[in-house]
Simulated scan of single mutants.
Amino acid sequence: MKKLSVAACVSLALLAPLAAQAQNIAIVNGKPVPKTRVDALIGQATRQGQPATPELEKQARDEVVLREMFIQEAEKRGLPASPDVQTQMELARQTILIRELFEDYRKNNPVTDAEITAEYDKFKAQSSGTEYRARHILVEKEDDAKKLIKQIKGGAKFEDVAKKNSKDPGSAEKGGDLDYAKPDSYVPEFGQAMAQLKKGQMTDAPVKSQFGYHIIKLEDTREAQFPALAEIKPQIEQRLSQVKLAKFRDDIRANAKTDYKFETAN
């Protein structure tokens, strides 16, 4: 093998500092500022939705150089030796490591399509059955409810009576309309009474619940509607990911040996 010439050796020696310099964006008081800091700031910004533009890169470069200047001044004043500063720095270190711990777990344990489909099928099965579209009027006293039933049977429109008299703020302005829902979506007394009605029928007597007295009219029924998997896949994936992370967290806590007693479950 031929030996490198003196000229070649000199050239390599000159290139080495240039290569190292290419990894830095500036020198502040003799200390290099690495480009990796710029990349990290840009990465944080883009993950939060900011577009990666030349302007963003310029701002990131300015920021890391300013930070280096401020850090050097803080070190010059001996601030890192302060017990309070050391405690805050340790808490910041813990925060970063914990965030990366859970992010690493999430990346290595992604929610699979099979898990999403299984969860979707479970929810869909639970949501099957008949949905009822009802209207209701809610009042505080049974006698008031009986009077309103008499008015409606006498020819008054249910919707008008509901708008004028119902104490339910969520449905009164809509003429008492509750839209489609399954009976178990309501308190038992209401759901049972509603399910016994035929289309267009109204309860003959007030239905008492914890909220007061209801007059219920059934508008229509239909088979329960459920969105297609593609429509709610992101929500299911997010929920399952949160469940996995919660289990990972709980497993770490359960397996740790400590004499500390938690007062409440976290």
Rank of each mutant, 00 (worst) to 15 (best):
M69G: 06
L66H: 15
K35A: 08
V33E: 00
Q48P: 00
F70D: 11
D62P: 00
T46R: 11
V28S: 04
A74Y: 05
P80V: 03
Q44T: 13
E75P: 01
L41N: 09
V65H: 03
A40N: 14
T53V: 05
K58Q: 15
E63I: 05
V64R: 07
E63H: 07
M69I: 15
K58Y: 04
E68Q: 15
A52C: 08
I71A: 10
Q44F: 08
P34F: 02
Q59I: 15
Q50F: 11
V64W: 09
R67A: 11
T46F: 02
K58M: 12
E57T: 12
E75N: 13
I71G: 07
K31V: 12
G43T: 10
I42V: 15
K35F: 01
E57K: 15
Q72D: 12
T53W: 05
V33D: 00
V33L: 00
Q50L: 14
V28T: 04
I42S: 05
P32W: 07
E55I: 06
G43N: 13
P51K: 11
T36R: 14
P34Q: 06
Q59S: 13
A60K: 06
A45V: 03
D39Q: 10
A26M: 04
T53C: 01
K76M: 01
D62T: 12
I27W: 14
R47D: 10
K35C: 00
D39P: 00
I27T: 14
V38W: 02
